[in-house]
């Protein structure tokens, strides 16, 4: 049983954490793709920017969370979401919109987003330095140990992980309701299906574009902050997120928000399973195995240093066998 608890702690919990982060990032990428038709490479840096703004606010008001019983960073989230959304809309107005109005090819917008990536990275590192910083300023991360009867090893969950699961579920449900029930959400879907027809039927496309950036910016802030809460804030956070969130968006079918959620969890679990050392699970069977099978100590599929290979191979496999993604995305 100890091994099963170990598996639960190191695969189920860890996979759900990375999966939730990737899912929230991938939703943003996929929404921008379906409305603006280009791969927004600065998205991972928007996640870093959101987390960085939360860090700044937390440093300014380190005790704001105490009356509510939540970490200060979580209380600061809504403000940072608004600020990041403003930044996202501003970046769009200043950099992307003029190019769009020029009627450039989507690939030029991709290059522009690489430029935005560098600008955001430079700005964040200019102010934060290059080291890692904890988002728990003047506070301690709470760790819950759930004892399972009859087993020595407890199930371990931390406070940020629980907050992350709650926030992910809430935001996915809210997004679903928004896209299917509200007028604006329906307009957004219409615009992703056929922009010309949407404009002809009187939908304010400018408003929809702004709305897309607001949703993407808010989700990016949520994902970036909750990831930084779970580990620590690092200015090069985006570097580890870019490939997985794009893999997740493409696996789920580009332009398909719920595909992105599924893709996020698929990529997150695939990463965790690939670096998990399977020989731990096989250890109890060791005595009953025939003598000619020798169990190696390290049965992980890839070492942790090659974690980045996993999303890449998922991406390549999907591009070879199902370029439209698992859920038949709209854009190929």
């Amino acid at each position: 049983m100890n091994e099963l608890i170990y598996f639960f702690n190191y695969v189920v919990v860890a996979g759900s954490v990375t999966g939730s982060i990737y899912a929230m990032g991938a939703i943003g990428v996929t929404l921008i793709y379906s409305i603006l038709r280009f791969a927004h490479f600065a998205h991972a840096d928007m996640m870093t920017l959101g987390a960085f703004l939360v860090l700044l606010l937390t440093l300014l008001f380190p005790h704001a969370g105490e009356p509510l019983g939540l970490p200060t960073a979580v209380v600061m989230l809504p403000i940072a979401m608004v600020l990041t959304s403003l930044a996202a809309v501003g970046i769009d107005r200043v950099f992307y919109q003029p190019l769009r109005n020029h009627g450039v090819k989507p690939i030029v917008l991709v290059i522009a987003s690489l430029g935005v990536t560098l600008m955001l990275q430079g700005l964040i590192r200019l102010f934060s330095g290059t080291g890692a910083q904890s988002l728990y300023v003047d506070a301690r991360k709470e760790i819950f140990r759930l004892e399972v009867p009859g087993v020595t090893r407890p199930i371990i969950l931390t406070e940020p992980q629980i907050i992350l699961f709650v926030v992910t579920i809430a935001s996915v449900i809210a997004l679903h309701l928004f896209l299917t029930r509200s007028r604006l959400g329906k307009a957004m879907r219409a615009m992703s299906d056929n922009p010309d027809l949407a404009r002809a039927s009187g939908i304010n496309t400018q408003l929809i574009v702004t709305l897309t950036w607001v949703i993407a910016g808010s989700l990016a802030t949520l994902a970036g902050t909750l990831l930084s809460l779970d580990v620590a804030f690092k200015p090069d956070l985006s570097f580890f997120l870019l490939l997985p969130i794009f893999a997740a968006a493409i696996v789920g079918g580009v332009g398909h928000p719920f595909g992105a959620v599924a893709g996020g969890f698929l990529v997150g679990f695939a990463e965790t399973l690939a670096v998990f050392n399977w020989s731990v699970l096989l250890r109890p069977l060791r005595d009953s195995l025939p003598s000619w099978i020798e169990l190696p100590n390290n049965l992980a599929l890839v070492g942790t240093e090659y974690k980045i290979v996993v999303p890449f191979f998922i991406l390549i496999a999907v591009l070879i066998w199902r370029p439209t993604g698992l859920f038949k995305g709209k854009v190929i």
Binding site: V108, L118, Q121
Partner: peptide, 14 residues
Amino acid sequence: RVFVIGLLILMVLR
């Protein structure tokens, strides 16, 4: 310098 390179890319494209 990272920031300047990024800005330069955007300015040239624009």
